[in-house]
């Protein structure tokens, strides 16, 4: 079963640990945080559970169709948008419980002072292919 672990810049439930943005951490703290993420992905590859991990730049734009023969409308970025996706990891695991366990571990990435930042991650199941035998 594949799950998406989604990390948001904005739109999360209230944070449980108050910490400054990463640009105010010490370089060593930033390294420790990045290293933790990297090691986590490498470990999941070894357990045969890693599918993909990507980070997104915060800037982008909204695009939509604007009628035949006209260029698409490009709008934004909208600073007031409530939700902003920072990146994701896709895992392939045996159960929802395992997905939650792994998301919990990823959320323990260290922040200032090497303490876990307890950040919220959204866990969403992929829609799979339909089974053959249903009746």
């Amino acid at each position: 079963m594949k799950y998406l672990l989604l990390k948001h810049y904005r739109g999360n439930p209230a944070p449980v640990v108050d910490y400054p943005p990463m640009d105010q951490w010490t370089p060593a703290e930033v390294d420790a945080h990045m290293g933790y993420m990297h090691d986590f992905a490498a470990r999941l590859e070894r357990t045969g559970e890693f599918i993909d991990g990507q980070a997104l730049a915060p800037d982008g734009a909204y695009v939509r169709y604007d009628g035949e023969g006209r260029p698409p409308v490009v709008d934004g970025p909208f600073p007031e948008t409530k939700d902003l996706i920072a990146g994701w990891m896709v895992i392939d695991v045996d159960s929802w419980d395992r997905a939650v366990e792994l998301a919990g571990e990823l959320s323990a990435a260290p922040g200032p002072g090497g303490k876990p930042i307890h950040e919220w991650l959204e866990v969403r199941p992929f829609l799979a292919a339909p089974p053959t035998v249903t009746e």
Partner: peptide, 15 residues
């Protein structure tokens, strides 16, 4: 067949 990266599948099998 299972839409999984080859490296991950190789690790799953050797594990």
């Amino acid at each position: 067949a299972y839409l999984v990266p080859e490296a991950t599948m190789a690790q799953r099998i050797s594990r």
